[in-house]
Design a protein around this nucleic acid. Structure first.
Lengths: 336, 336
DNA sequence: GACCTCCTGGAAAACGATTGCCAATCTTGC
DNA sequence: GCAAGATTGGCAATCGTTTTCCAGGAGGTC
């Protein structure tokens, strides 16, 4: 293992000079020594020991990203955006997946704190569990107390900079659009009752229906993934339009209807939420609410890294979804 | 920032004892001291400084994962598998995306080397560029020379442990299955000419056709993603069956045909490769070759971590794909 | 020519852990 | 009651950098 000292000796300079040449410094080093050091490093195949560097500098070049599930395209898109800005800033990204276990989320924050990462990004819905949320906040406070920066994508529940998708507003907008198509009897595939993202989408949707004087939709709970949508769709009775609180669940719902010979959109309309890129080529194409996921991930990391953060109120940036009507929903004649 | 020394002082013990209590050691510590130390750590909110630990131990708890594109479900699935075993082993995963730029892949290996990660996983196709491959191997050798472990998912071209999908074999099997359905005139959406994964799938496919005495398929190159499939499909002339070298391209091809009023599978059959989970609910459902992606990622990390690796020939584990015939391909009558 | 400043190079003290070695205490068998 | 062995605690060296401080030389000004 070749160390900086080896390089320095080989180049006939001091450790300090070698360090200044190889790992950025404000100090200048004369051209001839600089060349000698660089050549020595090259010849010896020197690679900075980042652990030592981190220790000495007291700051690492790593950011942490905590997601629920990387195979969910929602999180993959967020991660992609965050990694884009990380690369621009010369940072590496440590990714942790909780598989929707909030305990693991807390544990990972502790681990990332131990790693002294520059920033932690928490992506994905909070859950309605005060105890867990409190313990998570404690862990985050501990991290913050030592200079750690935090940003979330999702609900503004952690007292940190947040990129907050307009879940309720988007769902409400969607409800109005669907009502505009003539639908009156709705069902909502609502996901797990404790997932706040799901809650918000449900309440935005039902709230807008109520405002329009329409009957409350049938609520069917289930998991937040494809199979949850598939299962919940089977319990829908008597609706002309089904809103799945995310696209992946909508895909499950489509499959369920197809398997049972129910045609979409002729017999029932289906809408989702997120506008997952991989699913844009579905047939029928999915009516949904578009979220700029990659940009949201990128923005969250920017917020976390922005040094103007000192001793200020947490910033919350709302990003609004855009309703995209596509083939999975159809207009109803008034008597339809 | 609370350090181990703070904890030791607060507990009235030496640094050594505190270290032994808090960060695993072979040495035992008496129950009463142990309790005192644990309580002090708890009260002070101590978190190990991993950088210092890594420096002192000379080994880190991080593995590196280099992928082409995390939003590609292929890589997301591999990453998920790898992260599963990482979690089992108490390791963190540093993920880097090259966005298909081989120079960046080399740079990331250097960076991960600097991080002294335990192992590096290189996922994704190698490219047919001897110069780049040579420089990558040099960088890998440098890493290996200092005890780094390496594994790849893809071609066995780097002299490292490899999980090698049977691209050629799978494609050949697929060709035989499609020929068995009665198809004679094929087109292949071949991806980029320099991508070895694409090459292998193309050559496996065309090789099998040749063995069957069938005419050579039309080859259309393009990018390895959805848009590449979409564009390439437009150039297909006179084929009853189109093989896209991966599922995501196949989705693009389906979209292209649909946009042009060409029915799948009635007018043309379409097949892909990989069996991406997110795409299983497509209509028509995609005939493809299933690869156990998550397990492959997991296995690759296991290989890299397996200590029996000492001074041995690199291991190559072949994993074979399984042809899955679905609705996007149909049988032809002999005169069809 | 003296004095001051600016620039560059090096010696050495951190940074926060781990661990080899030594010493003290405790068991245990006789 | 004692020696041998097993445990347990602590001192201090070590890991590979960064960075502060100091010194010497170059260049500029009066």
């Amino acid at each position: 293992m070749v160390t900086l000292e080896d390089v320095a000796r080989h180049a006939g300079v001091s450790l300090a000079t070698a360090s200044r040449v190889l790992n950025g410094s404000t100090r200048q080093v004369g051209a001839s020594l600089r060349a000698r050091v660089e050549q020595a490093a090259q010849q010896l195949g020197y690679r900075t020991n980042v652990a030592a560097q981190t220790l000495a500098r007291g700051a690492s070049n790593v950011v942490g990203l905590v997601v629920h599930d990387l195979t969910d395209p929602y999180f993959a898109a967020l991660a992609d955006g965050a990694m884009r800005v990380a690369e621009d800033q010369g940072l590496m990204v440590m990714v942790a997946t909780t598989h929707r276990d909030p305990e693991r989320e807390i544990a990972y924050v502790a681990t990332l704190n131990a790693q002294r990462v520059r920033a932690v990004l928490l992506a994905g819905s909070r859950i309605a569990n005060p105890g867990v949320t409190r313990r998570l906040r404690e862990e985050l406070d501990r991290y913050r107390a030592t200079g750690g920066r935090i940003a979330c994508v999702g609900q503004d529940l952690l007292g940190a900079d947040t990129v907050a998708p307009g879940n309720a507003e988007g769902a409400a907008e969607l409800a109005r659009a669907l009502a505009g198509l003539g639908h009156r009897r709705f069902a909502v595939l609502a996901g797990p009752p404790w997932l706040i993202t799901a809650q918000d989408r449900v309440s935005g949707f039902t709230g807008a229906l109520a405002e329009l004087g329409l009957p409350a939709p049938q609520l069917v709970h289930g998991t937040f993934d494809r199979d949850g949508g598939y299962g919940a769709a089977a319990e829908v009775t008597d609706a002309t339009c089904v809103f799945a609180v995310n696209d992946v669940m909508a895909v499950g719902a489509l499959a369920s209807f197809r398997d049972r010979g129910i045609r979409v959109p002729e017999d029932v309309s289906v809408a989702g939420f997120d506008d997952i890129a991989t699913l844009r080529d579905l047939v029928p194409s999915l009516t949904t609410v578009r979220l700029p996921l990659s940009d949201m991930g990128a923005r969250a990391l920017e917020l976390a890294l922005d040094p103007s953060e000192e001793a200020r109120e947490p910033r919350v940036e709302r990003v609004s979804g855009e309703v995209v009507l596509r083939g999975s929903t159809r207009g109803l004649t008034p008597e339809g």
